[in-house]
Simulated assay, not measured.
Amino acid sequence: MSDRAGAPLDGLTTEAGLREVWARLGKCGVLTELYHHVDGERRLRAEPLRALLAALDSRGRTGVTLAVCVQVASVLPLLDAGAAGSPVVASLLDRALAGEQLVALAVTDAGAPGSDLAALDTTLETDGDMVTVTGAKRWITNATGCDYFLTLARHRPGRHFTSFAWILVPARAAGVEVAAAPTPLFAGSGTGEVRFDRVRLSTAHLVGRPGRALASFARHITRERFAGAVWTVALLRRALTDTRASLTGRNSDGAPLWSMDLLRHRCASAVVEIRLLNALTYEVEQQILNGYDAAAAALVKTAAARTAESVLTACASLQGADGYLPGAAQQLRAEAAVFGIGGGTVDLMLSDIAEHAEALLAQVQR
């Protein structure tokens, strides 16, 4: 699968945009092969996912990899879960898997902290066979280039988990306004903000039953957290490989920097950290991909965020001034902070880990 994951990208320049990359992946069947059907649902397969994220990361465009990761780990499974009995959702899912449509996951609300989904104030009002969507979302990956927004909205008052629903909002619908996020990072991700000014849609655009949106999100976000950790391994491996090459190619007093034990040991420590994170992703993959284990997902996400910070800090120091070049360690370090924020902050993950500490410890050495 590794060769097949990268083959569709052959011939594309590193500047190729998300839509072109997504179309190639869909046309060549890579997106379909990411999943298998178990108990009537579409589940991610670990090895094809690893191969795809490694192939994407090798191109050096974190924004495009981020945009693909969100879609394959969260958007497509969520659409699949809500496709039964909905021709609109089922049709969009087929077109997305074919690489013909891009869907943004519009969860983070402009009117509430991103970590407090129950406080969001984007609303969905039902009137017969029509719905009206009002509100705003921010820091949405794929926002500026998507065809649809898979939007989490409140369908009734209150913080109860049954108060929310998913709705597909066409990006070109009347009342939809999109703007790029004011950041120089994640080029190619299409990250932006979207406002819904009383957008009128038919109830056919609902995804799944109203009241089950938060439950489905909690279930499927575990896969995105796992995918983020898998991508972290690929990104750190690339960064450390580049750092080692830099050390072997630069001299001090006529000898390569790589000959200095202090620098070699810092690289060696980073190798150990990357290998430990990689081993953890293999340990928990079935718990998460087949069992939706939230504690295991919190564990691997936290480990990924911490490992990324540690390894990229070392790479940035070892690369020196060259670390400030485009795509080098300093930029990667800033962009990799998303591993500790997107899909749930590390502080939230630690709360989940603490809640399940006894069970997680019981699994050690089993």
Rank of each mutant, 00 (worst) to 15 (best):
A314E: 13
V169T: 07
R237H: 12
V89F: 00
L34N: 00
L18F: 01
G11T: 03
L78G: 01
A334H: 08
G85F: 00
G342N: 14
S189M: 06
A54D: 05
L235A: 07
E285W: 04
L78A: 02
G342D: 10
A143E: 02
M260Q: 13
A84G: 07
T302M: 11
T307H: 02
G208V: 07
T123N: 06
Q365R: 15
A295E: 02
D116L: 06
R264P: 00
S317F: 13
Y324W: 14
T32Y: 14
V233I: 03
R138L: 09
G175K: 13
Q365K: 15
E335H: 13
E20M: 01
A46K: 05
T144D: 00
D57Q: 08
V271M: 03
V346D: 10
E100W: 01
P210Y: 13
S74A: 15
R19D: 01
A213P: 02
A215P: 05
A136T: 08
A255Y: 14
P184M: 05
R306G: 15
Y148I: 01
P170Q: 09
R200M: 07
R366C: 09
R237Y: 05
R306M: 13
L34V: 02
I221R: 09
E358Q: 13
T307P: 11
L325S: 15
R172G: 15
Q287G: 13
G63M: 03
F226E: 04
P326W: 14
L206S: 08
V131P: 11
S115V: 08
R209V: 12
V199E: 05
H220V: 07
G26Y: 01
G135R: 05
A143D: 02
R250E: 13
T144Q: 00
G114C: 05
L120A: 09
L312N: 02
V199L: 04
A73C: 08
L97K: 03
Y35S: 02
A334C: 07
A119Y: 00
E100H: 04
L360I: 04
E125L: 12
L262W: 11
L66Q: 09
E33Y: 03
S115W: 06
D197L: 13
S269N: 11
P8Y: 06
F217M: 03
L262N: 08
D347N: 14
A173T: 12
G60W: 10
I221T: 09
R42W: 08
L124I: 10
